[in-house]
Design a protein around this nucleic acid. Sequence first.
DNA 1: AAGCTACTTAGACAATCGTCAAAACAGCGC
DNA 2: GCGCTGTTTTGACGATTGTCTAAGTAGCTT
Lengths: 139, 139
Amino acid sequence: MTATTLPLARGSQDAQAGTCCAPIARRPLGEGDAAEMAVLLKAVADPVRLRLLSMIGSHAGGEACVCDLTDAFDLTAPTISHHLKVLRTAGLIGSERRGTWVYYWIIPETVNKLGALFAPLTEPGSRSDRPADLTVTPA
Amino acid sequence: MTATTLPLARGSQDAQAGTCCAPIARRPLGEGDAAEMAVLLKAVADPVRLRLLSMIGSHAGGEACVCDLTDAFDLTAPTISHHLKVLRTAGLIGSERRGTWVYYWIIPETVNKLGALFAPLTEPGSRSDRPADLTVTPA
DNA sequence: AAGCTACTTAGACAATCGTCAAAACAGCGC
DNA sequence: GCGCTGTTTTGACGATTGTCTAAGTAGCTT
């Protein structure tokens, strides 16, 4: 099998690649968008998968073979393979077999969705620290 | 070797608030940093908690009481309370009781850690040749 | 104080997750 | 072909998670 591309269909209003929704504190996340992003987040919410993703993304040449990854962990090969499958199913990485080894690379569009979700709000004049006070007088 | 594996959890060396580590594809994530970020990500890797966080962060006044949040879900109050506790334990939100109601607000420093981790990949050609000096606006 | 509302804690349950050992699959070299 | 190495699949196991009901705590109003 070759590089997998997850359907991840029906993003609400994502006309742009690498974006699903507005930053988390900009506007309430819709039910569908939340579900979609949760799938992505579940895939990275594991220390092993986080390190795998990071090792793949920062590896020279932009890709890494499984043999490069396994030694860094105290886990069996099937477990590493399982984690890679989770990342691949989520659309975070792609894979391809070339001869003996299988290579993995990051799919930046998907990673960028996460970055966009937690993008800092640079919008001035809004809260972002402690609650104002009991005086809730909106402008 | 420097203190790469500190027994006390405390984060590697983040003098910078709202930042834990370099972006995920910049350099391999350390074991401790990955564990720390995974805790944060697990807290957010749920559609209900994602929406809660978003509803709180985007609520007028910068805070929301539980009564504002419960109606949006088809879940019992204890379940909502449980999810809020998970978010609060992770340091993503703060809470305070004022009279009858309990108010929640976002802690942006923690959310920014997630944003920094998935910061967009800029130059796909050059990696790890710079010591990752991202400077987040200190609020 | 008694009753009411808002919210949290405690305990239980099925479902999912992370891990492993064993087996299977895919290429390469002899 | 046969054996060897690299990677994935299968099946199983305990641990964790999301949800509920029931009961508890905190504050207001009478």
